[in-house]
Structures are given as C-alpha cells and as structure tokens.
C-alpha cells in the first residue's frame, strides 16, 4: 500500500520511517499530481503558515481538499491537524487551510517552546500507553458530533477521528512509536 507524506516542509522523514515500519510504502508528495498515486496522505508536523502558503502557491490546496472530500484518508499531526480543522480560533490564524474536519482548534495553545512537553497517553484500542511529544502544540477546543475522540490530555481531545480523517495535536513520529500509523493504515484499508 502506498501512503503519501506531504513533503513541502516539516518532519517528513520521521513519518516516512514509521509508515515503512508499519508495513506500507511511504511516498513523498510535493505536487498535486502525486496525490493520484497514493491511497492516503499524511500532513506532517511543521509550520502551519508555511505549509499552507506552499499548498496554495503550488496549486495543491484545492485538489487535495477535493480528494479528501471524495474519501481519501488523511492523517494530520500538529500543523497537519491545524490545517485540517474547519475552524482555527484565537489570535493566531492560518492564511490557508484545508478545512475538512469538523473541529475548532487554537494554535500554540500550551504556550511557547519552553512549555513544549512529552507525556504518556492512553489511546482507545491500544493496550499500553503511547509516548507523545507536544511541540508548540495546538488545542482542539471543540469537535462536531461525527468526531470520535481516541485520546485526551487534560480533558481536551488530542487524537480524533472523523470517518477516514485522523488528527493528533502531538507527534507520535518524534517518539518513534508506529501504533498510531497502524491505526491510520487500518482506516485506509477500511476506505479501500
């Protein structure tokens, strides 16, 4: 199974490594045409403003949104989750957004880099805790009724799913645990 990693900017390599470790084949995508080759796409961590601008300037934003609306599974981590949210709240917006998932998110909501942290999370369906790294992470303030919360931290959703869409405000790929990527591969199989 081929899984795309949006390769405009961010921790692309770490996601590719975990997709390969989970038994699929990672393909780095930098152009809209690449979207046709893959069964699902990961929008990695990075700077949401930068990735959004590049998506727009290089004509990837609209085709990507259409593919997701047509059912292509997608997993966004941190910046990826921000870009996927239908609403970005607070003083720090994003100029360009994919805006497909029924949730409202706030950027840099835990504070600045000195407030970045790691922790162990209990995730629905996983038998032991997941090491999770939160870097200048956003907070999901609200989710729609069709969104399933798979993990919480401090009573806020941090890993959520809506149909074939998965989003985490943390980085499992920085801790190097591929179990969330396996959940995503299962979503792709289901969407089959």
């Amino acid at each position: 199974m081929k899984v795309g990693i949006l390769g405009l900017q961010g921790d692309v390599r770490e996601h590719a490594r975990l997709i390969d470790a989970a038994g699929a084949t990672a393909i780095i995508i930098k152009h809209a045409a690449g979207l046709d080759e893959v069964a699902g796409l990961i929008v990695p961590g990075g700077e949401s403003t930068t990735i959004g601008k590049l998506l727009d300037r290089f004509g990837i934003l609209d085709p990507l949104r259409e593919r997701i609306r047509a059912g292509m599974p997608v997993y966004g981590t941190c910046a990826g989750a921000i870009l996927m949210a239908r609403e970005v709240r607070g003083p720090e917006g994003v100029p360009h957004s994919i805006g497909v998932m029924d949730m409202a998110i706030v950027r840099n909501a835990y504070g600045r880099q000195v407030d970045s942290f790691e922790t162990d999370l209990d995730v629905a369906g996983l038998d032991r805790p997941l090491r999770s790294v939160f870097i200048r992470a956003p907070i999901i303030e609200e989710v729609g009724s069709g969104v399933e919360v798979l993990a919480e931290f401090d009573d806020r959703p941090v890993l959520v799913r809506e149909n074939g869409m998965l989003a985490s405000t943390f980085h499992p790929e920085i801790a190097g645990d591929e179990r969330v990527h396996r959940i995503f591969l299962d979503l792709i199989e289901e969407a089959g």
């Binding site: 961010g10 390599r13 961590g45 000195v114 931290f153």
Partner: peptide
C-alpha cells in the same frame, strides 16, 4: 482518565522543534 504529567525541557522536546523546521527557511 487523562494524563497530566508534562515533562518539559528534555532532549527530545528540544530537538523536536528543530525537526519541525526542516525543509524551511
């Protein structure tokens, strides 16, 4: 139950921000 332990300032968290900047200016 949600976890509330936050480990700040570790090597992974510090190096992690640089990972997020990759491919950028």
């Amino acid at each position: 139950m949600s976890e509330t332990t936050r480990e700040t300032g570790g090597a992974r968290v510090k190096r992690g921000l640089a990972e997020m900047l990759k491919g950028g200016v």
